[in-house]
Design a protein around this nucleic acid. Structure first.
Length: 594
RNA sequence: GGGGGUGUAGCUCAGUUGGUUAGAGCGAUCGCCUGUCACGCGAUAGGUCGAGGGUUCGAGUCCCUUCACUCCCGCCA
């Protein structure tokens, strides 16, 4: 038998009464009654109450010992009287009378309490992450993460996929995020890059004939953090399949995600077959390509209304003439809402940098009218037209804003969330997943006015690929798709372009000549010339899936050892200075900006 | 790179209009307590009010600069 424990701290039950046992764990909590001391002993599995009386020669030592000290106790399991049973813990019907004990790991005064539901600053939590991780909530989150990953591995294998590793040291690529670079000692002046994703490798795996690949893949991107975006590194369920069309990828992902969400959360799935929403529709109806479908509000375009002569809202009419658009959100049956609700939205919009949100409520007295500050500018015919266009009914209200399209999309998307929150329209017990499809292949860079890839440059364009109209590149759509859950982007994927000539052509439109493509994507472009199968895939973000399942708003709550917002590991003290010698070996000299 | 929030005891926070010696809870230390499970009771220690500068008779409080953490925008094919 192991010398540290006969049982773990979640094992003892009534049937064990009378047994001599020994347990090891952390002192979670002490309750000192002077002649009687209760100790809650905690390990990964649970808590067992241990008890010692004054008569025992160990009493005074144990009484003085710090919380979170690791001890081993020898003792006997006894039953608890009915009044003293603790239903909160699994071992609550019994307790262990301590005969002797020993300290296995001493503990200094704690910088933060472990046994507490209190919130602590991120700084202290990250600096003492090993203490933070002992706390119940995050301890359980990390275990959940492990179980989710195992489950996903199993499901993928059941679906006929095999897991393959790809290199961590690879080459820098010009498209996409900023790379983390690693200097090469053996190749002076040259650098590896950490992969932003195993994109080219997984396509090469397909060209190598492996048919169905997956990997829980670490990805590295040197970009700024957000609450749902770790700086530096994160994990994707990377997958790729040969001889597939878009729907084949969708079927695999739907099966996998439905099973995963069902298995790890009590929340309901809004749809088992996720709705397909085109990028264009999504931008129109939700103002974003990551819509939260739990929110029933829809955005409508009512620009045309402002061309009518019987609409007198001159500020908007003038803006519309110079190319602005007007979009609105209808709220159902809100005629009784207080003025503060409407003004609150307007004020909020102004805080967001918009010119505000106009509003009125559709009313019927003798005839239809708009009640609210700007209602009087609309004739009854114009109001009828709006109702027809938006599906609004008498008693509903309308919020609308006028701006250039891009800004308008932003502000209405935010307003959609804000209004839904105010009206409590979002059911938090639902997962609403959807596909966003038909992304444009290219977009115009706002600053440089140049055409660039809007997403993945390796995506297959839609339509007759022998007769694509390259004169209008912005109209070319791609077999490119995202999956979105509750307004959070879970992943991006695409059917890939496996035809080298087409690849050169598509890159040339984004400003890369053949030589550049050959140089930057040499591994892949070369391989495509030797019999490449049609293939496609996707890469759901593992951290975000776990975040949703754990019901957390911050990705650090499901990451064991995260970095802070400035991409520093406060516990390990990374990044850090390196010695002159190390730099010399790498032929690197530092020239720091002042 | 830009904008917002926060920064007071080991931890979580309060601190009025600028006014005497900066408070509470938890934790720590000491004492009391035999059925608690957030045990209870009493006492003690613990502060460069993030840092620097300024205004003022007087600054935790007002102003400027700066640092740290965090949220957001940019960025993240």
């Amino acid at each position: 038998m192991n010398k540290y424990r006969s049982h773990n701290c979640n094992e003892l039950r009534k049937k064990d009464i009378g047994k001599k046992v020994f347990l090891s764990g952390w002192i979670n909590k002490k309750r000192d009654h002077g002649n009687l001391l209760f100790i809650d002993l905690r390990d990964n599995y649970g808590i067992t109450q241990c008890i010692i009386e004054k008569e025992n020669s160990n009493f005074s030592t144990l009484e003085k010992i710090q919380l979170e000290t690791v001890i081993k106790v020898d003792g006997e399991v006894v039953s608890r009287s009915n009044e003293t049973i603790n239903k909160e813990i699994n071992t609550g019907e019994v307790e262990v009378i301590i005969k002797s004990f020993s300290v296995l790991g001493a503990c200094k005064e704690l910088p933060m309490p472990i046994f507490s539901d209190q919130e602590y600053s991120e700084e202290i939590r990250l600096r003492y992450r090993f203490l933070d991780l002992r706390r119940k909530k995050i301890h359980e989150n990390i275990i959940l993460r492990s179980k989710v990953i195992s489950f996903i591995r199993n499901e993928m294998i059941k679906l006929g996929f095999l897991e393959y590793q790809t290199p961590i040291l690879t080459s820098s690529s010009p498209e996409g995020a900023r790379d983390f670079l690693v200097p090469s000692r053996l190749n002076p002046g040259k650098f590896y890059a950490l992969p932003q994703a195993p994109q080219q490798f997984k396509q090469l795996i397909m060209v190598s004939g492996f048919d169905r690949y997956f990997q829980i893949a670490p990805c590295f991107r040197d970009e700024d953090a957000r609450a749902d975006r770790s700086p530096g590194e994160f994990y994707q369920l990377d997958l790729e399949m040969s001889f597939v069309e878009q729907e084949d990828v969708f079927n695999v992902v739907e099966t996998l995600l439905v099973n995963t969400f069902k298995n790890f959360s009590k929340k309901k799935l809004l749809n088992k077959k996720f709705p397909r929403i085109s990028y264009k529709d999504s931008m129109m109806r939700y103002g974003t390509d990551k819509p939260d479908l739990r929110n029933p509000l829809i955005i409508n375009d009512i620009t045309e209304i402002f061309l009518r002569d019987d609409v007198k809202l001159d500020i908007f009419k003038k803006l519309v003439k110079s190319g602005s658009k007007v979009r609105c959100i209808i709220t159902k049956n809100t005629k009784e809402k207080p003025r503060s609700f409407f003004d609150g939205v307007d004020k909020w919009a102004k805080d967001q940098g918009a010119s505000g949100m106009a509003y009125f409520t559709f009313e019927m007295n003798k005839e239809i009218s708009g009640r609210g500050p700007v209602g009087k500018f609309f004739s009854k015919d114009a109001l009828n037209e709006i109702m027809k266009k938006t599906g609004a009914k008498i008693g509903d209200s309308i919020f609308f804003a006028c701006s250039k399209e891009k800004h308008l999309e932003n502000i209405t998307a935010l307003a959609r969330n804000k209004i839904a929150r105010d009206l409590n329209l979002v059911d938090d017990n639902i997962f609403a997943l959807c596909w966003i499809v038909d992304y444009p292949m290219y977009e115009k860079d706002n600053e440089t006015k140049k055409i660039k890839f809007s997403h993945n440059p390796f995506s297959m364009p839609q339509g007759d690929i022998d007769n694509l109209n390259f004169d209008k590149p912005l109209e070319i759509l791609a077999y490119q798709y995202d999956i979105v859950c509750n307004g959070i982007e879970l992943s991006s994927g695409a059917i890939r372009n496996h035809i080298p000539e087409l690849m050169y052509k598509l890159f040339s439109i984004a400003g890369y000549d053949k030589n550049q493509v050959d140089e930057k994507f040499s591994g892949m472009i070369n391989a495509l010339n030797y019999g490449a199968p049609p293939h496609g895939g996707i890469a759901p973000g593992v951290d975000r899936i776990v975040m949703l399942l754990a019901n957390e708003k911050n990705i650090r709550e499901v990451t064991m050892f995260p970095m802070n917002q400035n991409a520093q590991d406060l516990m390990m003290n990374a990044p850090s200075n390196v010695s002159e010698n190390q730099l010399k070996e790498l032929n690197i000299s530092l020239k720091l900006k002042k």
